[in-house]
Amino acid sequence: MTNNIQVTRKNPAYHLKDIQHYYGNTKVLDIDDLKIEKGSITGLIGPNGSGKSTLLKLLAFAQKPTLGQIFYKGRLELPFSSSIRSKITLLTQKPYLLKRTVFENIVYGLKIRKEKNNLEKRVAEALLNVGLDYQDFATRFWHELSGGEAQRVAMAARLILKPEVLLLDEPIASVDIESAGLIRQASLNARKNWGTTLVIASHDLQWLYSICDHQLSIFKGNIFSTGVENIITGPFEKSDQKTLIKKLEDGQIITLNAPSQTASTAIIRKKNICLALEKQSGNGHINQLSGHITSMLLEKKSETIVAAISVHDLSLIVLLSPDQINRLDLYPGKKVILYFHSHDVEWI
């Protein structure tokens, strides 16, 4: 779809440099360098409290990062500047609807922009985009909507602005499958029709993978531009000076090289994990874990498959090629062995 639009590649939509953001003394974001291309759809993955919402607020220029700079289309911008305020819009996790009718909620942004033409037609279009009927919904009040309807009205209030950037924070967390599909379609249409750049945070990986070009995963404020990575949290036991081990309840043991500084969470990149069908004899530095494939998702852009393997109560992710899948006859439910070297670990 990106082929349909003319995009000047000179400057990315966003360029974040040396961003550090604190709430009080707690560091919630730490991003050295991040670029988001114009017209791209970026998925944002990470557990609750990882910093997704904070990142979206920074991207919306609704907050100023404690340290660092954010460039929008090559220009350094500051929060609330009127030049970008009208171009970037954020749909928050729990969208706030004004205590007015649906119609007034949707035209609020237009009224601020002093646009008064064809309001009814534009509202009808925006509602249609999210699968709501104008006749039925325009005159309803905010308290006469279900959770999913409210979410879609909030979405329509953003779509009507034809924004350059649309930031969505958990847009389908509280909606039904039908609404999720409509929001997906509306997001794709926004890019197709207006070249909108989207950044979408969601817990629903399957839904997210079906929209975005690539993923960023975020954990404890750290960004991994390679998408979802494997996160292993403590407690770890000390094995010797150089290694830590984590014992799983089913008796399997993960051995990892100890961090040089204090750190509590291990990241194992998915590219470093291999998959086989049977255990092999090896040295103690190679972890061999047995588990089951739980899901396989296609990453659209790279045409690789992201497979999730459950190893007792851990869920690890590996990258597979279509060829590998054919050869090993992989499918969800199949028992597999994961390999990775104990030094292939990053600590945060």
């Binding site: 919306a60 305020r85 009208s86 819009t89 706030y96 609020y108 942004g109 601020i112 953003r158």
Partner: peptide
């Protein structure tokens, strides 16, 4: 006031004056 209100208004492009007016109208009850 719901913390998301101000964020919502900003993200819809509201300037300071719009924010104050809308906030007051939101808390009319």
């Amino acid at each position: 006031i719901d913390h998301d209100l101000k964020l919502t208004l900003v993200s819809l492009g509201a300037g300071r004056r719009n924010i104050i007016a809308t906030c007051l109208w939101e808390v009319r009850y």
